[in-house]
Design a protein around this nucleic acid. Structure first.
Length: 604
RNA sequence: GGCCCGGUAGUUCAGCUGGUUAGAACGCUAGCCUGUCACGCUAGAGGUCGAGGGUUCAAGUCCCUUCCGGGUCGCCA
């Protein structure tokens, strides 16, 4: 790599009165004979001596520009010789048909080229640190440091443009259904429960802080109280938690709320919207209504509340068959209130070596399982370290339950339910990956409904909201709120695409009494509840309509539709795993004066 | 915070049980080249091997510490 010098800067010319007439990628046979003025970046230059080809690129695509000494003159040709990658050029020339044997079928403009007559170098460029191709193999930190270059790549431009289209379709669809787009505050109040807040110190109120919103949840509920009836917002949200491939500290929700609806109304509207998006983005006709699973069913069959339904390998419960067996790992787990469940990995007894089976054992240990028992069903009998603990009768009923056939590998986990589900759920995905069962051309959407309202938090020694504290319980379960909170199901629902949760929502509580009760179950005294959520409890006293809604992770939705495996590829300027931005070098230290103004002392 | 993988040229990587002057490809520079499109040919430049310490006659290679990147678990109502 070399750096720009004075001589190169000296080549730069002003655009003057030149006007761009066409984008590069749109030119075709219909433009033959036209004089055009193009402006764009040098994608690649091929210098054949007396003939120079330059692939000129803008967001519409690439077109080949030819510099021929006899056609453009010595002076222009010399400029073309000095051109390098990523220089910004303005070219005047004529569109001509290419000779049949020089047509390039790989690009849309391959049947024509532009014979240059004039050239202005509008900007020079350092050698880029990586090549701006689609199939680059560069570390992500380099890409992020030079994100503006990374974003020049056609692949990234497609992602960002798709994102634009999807938000536009969503706006159009919701507008057509009578929704209003309304903005809510970014500087808001920190609330307990949920993720860690990003805090903003207040200059005017020493010692006090705003929080950036984790979602517009309470504001959209208040908008329902205000009678707007149907609201949506493409809303930026902030959560100060550790990052993942599908999690960024700031992300975007398609936030929707409706009045006078119950679960089925919200689901029906959203299915229509999803069908619209899938049709436009992928040309896929969704068949409606979409399948639904209850939370319980999802957990028992897939070991997760966001099942990838593109393949089988479902979990089977064998607890009742092994309750009294001699294998203490199984019977002990049952005795202490857990379960024993299994996956039949079809055909894997022959496909997997002993070493591969051992690696599965190690795999489940990552998820809290103490081990993974297995039985290989071979043509000449069973091979397994554990069969000796079982009677013939027990073995045959297990084989029958798992529909085992010769060649199958049976994999068992015994533990508390949540460990069993997590270990086998993850094992199922791992098997799906290893056996190549995840068909990339499939888009399996499924609703998961009837989530538990609450779950017990061992650390805090209390119940916490599974969805959020404003979610309504199912009508028929309200009676258990006091007596058996763990049993209460909620009017919450998630929409899952190929094992990725792309959205979720609920019908909300809309009475002061129920909201107080909910907060009470969560451990807030009436006094504390009013202190933290008083504005909401008060608002419910002025005529609150029944209401509910949903929020999509726009980044995840776009990621899935773009076929990417990280949301960083559909966000123009994302952050790295440590939540920093290598481009701007945020976060950064600030001047002592700034700290003083907001009454902050730093002890780090 | 735990675990796993990685850090060697601008980029992506190779570099065995420690042993001469650390290599390759692409990119870059220069020259030649009028139909290329991943142009070609010839020549060349480019490295504190992430950092610090240790073992050794000798460290890219072994040990310790630390920093950085990616994944993952915890976490993410």
């Amino acid at each position: 790599m070399y750096s720009l010098d004075d001589q190169e800067y000296g080549m730069v010319e002003l655009m003057g009165n030149w006007k761009r007439t066409h984008m590069c990628g749109v030119l075709n046979l219909a433009h033959i004979g036209q004089e055009v003025t193009l402006m764009g970046w040098v994608h690649r230059r091929r210098d054949l001596g007396g003939l120079i080809f330059i692939d000129l690129r803008d967001r519409s695509g690439i077109v080949q520009v030819v510099f021929n000494k006899e056609r453009c003159g010595e002076e222009v040709f010399q400029k073309a010789e000095a051109v390098r990658s990523e220089y910004v050029l303005a070219v005047k020339g004529a569109v001509v048909k290419r000779d049949p044997d020089t047509v390039n079928p790989k690009i849309p403009t391959g049947e024509i080229e532009v014979v240059a007559s004039q050239l202005k170098i509008l900007s020079v460029s350092n050698t880029p640190p990586f090549s701006l191709e689609d199939d680059i193999n560069v570390s992500e930190s380099v890409r992020l440091k030079y994100r503006y270059l990374d974003l020049r790549r056609a692949e990234m431009q497609r992602n960002i443009i798709l994102r634009h289209r999807i938000t536009k379709w969503v706006r159009d669809f919701l507008d057509s259904k009578g929704f209003y787009e309304i903005e809510t505050p970014m500087l808001t109040r920190s609330t307990p429960e949920g993720a860690r807040d990003y805090l903003v110190p207040s200059r005017l109120h020493p010692g006090k802080f705003y929080a950036l919103p984790q979602s517009p949840q309470l504001f959209k509920q208040l908008l329902m109280l205000s009678g707007f009836d149907r609201y949506f917002q493409i809303a930026r949200c902030f959560r100060d938690e550790d990052l993942r491939a599908d999690r960024q500290p700031e992300f975007t929700q398609i936030d929707i709320e409706m009045s006078f609806v119950d679960v089925d109304d919200v689901i029906a509207l959203n299915e229509e919207m999803l069908a619209d998006i899938f049709k436009k983005a992928l040309g896929i006709e969704l068949s409606l209504p979409l399948p639904r699973l209850t939370y319980k069913e999802a957990m028992e069959r897939y070991g997760t509340d966001k099942p990838d339904t593109r393949f089988g390998l479902e979990l089977k419960d064998v607890t009742d068959l092994v309750r009294d067996c001699e294998f203490k790992v199984f019977s002990g787990a049952v005795a202490s209130g857990g379960s024993v469940r299994a996956i039949n990995a079809k055909g894997c007894a022959v496909k997997f070596s002993r070493r591969e089976i051992d690696s599965l054992v190690d795999f489940v240990k990552n998820y809290g399982a103490k081990g993974l028992a297995w039985i290989a069903v071979e043509h000449d009998g069973l091979k397994s370290p554990i069969t000796k603990f079982f009677t013939e009768q027990q073995l045959s009923s297990i084989l029958q339950r798992l529909e085992a056939e010769p060649g199958d590998l049976l994999l068992f986990v015994a533990d508390k339910d949540d460990v069993v589900f997590q270990a086998l759920g993850q094992l199922r995905l791992e098997l799906g990956r290893r056996l190549n069962l995840m068909d990339k051309s499939k888009y399996n959407l499924v609703w998961v409904t009837e989530f538990p309202l609450l779950e017990y938090d061992e650390e805090e020694k209390r119940f916490v909201a599974k969805h959020h504290p404003f979610t309504a319980p199912m009508d028929e379960d309200i009676q258990y709120l006091d007596t058996d909170p763990a049993r209460v199901r909620s009017k919450a629902y998630d929409i899952v695409l190929n094992g990725v949760e792309i959205g979720g929502g609920s019908i909300r509580i809309h009475t002061t009494e129920m909201q107080e009760k909910m907060l009470n179950v969560l451990g807030f005294s009436k006094e504390k509840a009013w202190q933290r959520f008083g504005f909401l409890l008060e608002a419910f006293k002025y005529g609150a309509p029944p209401h509910g809604g949903i929020a999509y992770g726009l980044d995840r939705l776009v990621m899935m539709l773009a076929g990417r495996d990280t949301i960083r590829d559909v966000i123009a300027f994302p952050k790295m795993q440590n939540a920093s931005d290598p481009l701007t070098d945020a976060p950064s230290e600030v001047e002592p004066k700034q700290l003083k103004e907001v009454h902050i002392r730093v002890d780090a």
